[in-house]
Design a protein around this nucleic acid. Structure first.
Lengths: 192, 192
DNA sequence: GTCTATACGGGGATAGAC
DNA sequence: GTCTATCCCCGTATAGAC
């Protein structure tokens, strides 16, 4: 626990995180995890019961990260629209996709309630938090009173998730930026 | 070619289509395809060189379907916004996800240029076609002249693709509908 | 065209030595 | 805690018979 060396348990989780992001759950084998982490079979099965338990730790960490970063932007300085803009425009590893959103396309993740829960929670939180912000903007008179906070928040989160999809399809991050531009262009009309 | 029986080649493609949709490319094995189609090993490898060639046929068909359906709605009756609304609100198998969009999350599909091409083409076409419609609406005075057709089109397609992601995360199709509502709510402001 | 037999490596995990 | 050995089934494909 002391010293410079990172323990194997930690390496296993981090490697799984990366692989889940790059290849998804069905596309990630214990062998691949072991190779990337530098741990052997015995080490992996000592720390974790198996692939799914390891994935659970990795997914949880991905989810926590996403949430922490978003919250930092949401609670930052500026008007509501400014804060949302900062969030939407933040630099992302677009072509790799969203480390959490990607998991929704994985049949084995969605089939396992334990693995699925953090994904569900993350997007529930994200949408709700964004809806709060929008509502705050409405109350403050910054945004049109007719704007539906929850529907708009859901649409904004969807633009991000869909932006990843389109960017990967096109092989270019520009498409992600275009989608965000389009969304912000539409939102701007609702500003007073 | 005559008669009631559908040939095995056809069954193989259709089964692959379903499996690709349900489990993705990495999650679909030749064995699973054979079982679902009722064809044996020999039959499959007689008609196709292997998994990827079969997937290519299946992906192409999924892409053609998506395009044909969308085009029918885009070229239907009504104003531009009405046609877009019909398209966005069309009934979909939301929890299964988009049969084409889903493929973008599959590392082995994206890594193979042949498999990737139809996906890229489909979204390129879809976004472009929607941008044309929006531009038509602008020219006709139906939509605000300041609206950016390409960015808006990209955002709309992203809302759909992201809607699938969020609905799967939540385990409910309602979230997809919410995202669409949010997008249409924003678009409405741009109507004259 | 379709079937069965066969092949080989990999996925996923256990056992036991160190 | 970590390693190596081992296990069994599956993924993916070829060969050859019918």
């Amino acid at each position: 626990m002391y010293g410079l060396g990172v323990d194997k348990r930690e390496q296993l989780i981090e490697s799984t995180r990366e692989l889940l992001w790059e290849r998804g759950y069905v596309g990630t084998s214990p062998k691949a995890i072991q190779e990337r982490s530098g741990a052997g079979q015995g080490s992996m099965y000592h720390h974790f019961q198996g692939k799914s338990e390891l994935a659970l730790a990795a997914i949880g960490r991905n989810a926590d990260d996403l949430r922490a970063r978003a919250e930092a932007e949401f609670s930052g300085p500026g008007s509501v629209v400014e804060r949302i803009t900062v969030y939407l425009r933040r630099e992302r590893d677009v072509l790799k996709g969203c480390p959490v959103g990607k998991l929704t396309q994985d049949p084995d993740v969605m089939a396992d309630p334990d693995l699925r829960r953090p994904v569900e929670k993350t997007f529930g939180w994200l949408t709700g938090r964004l809806a709060e912000l929008l509502d705050e903007g409405r109350t403050a008179g910054e945004l049109d009173a007719a704007l539906d906070p929850l529907a708009t928040a859901t649409a904004l989160v969807a633009v991000l998730q869909g932006g990843y999809v389109l960017a990967r399809a096109a092989g270019s991050p520009d498409v992600f930026a275009k989608a965000v531009d389009g969304a912000l262009g539409l939102l701007a009309t609702k500003e007073k």
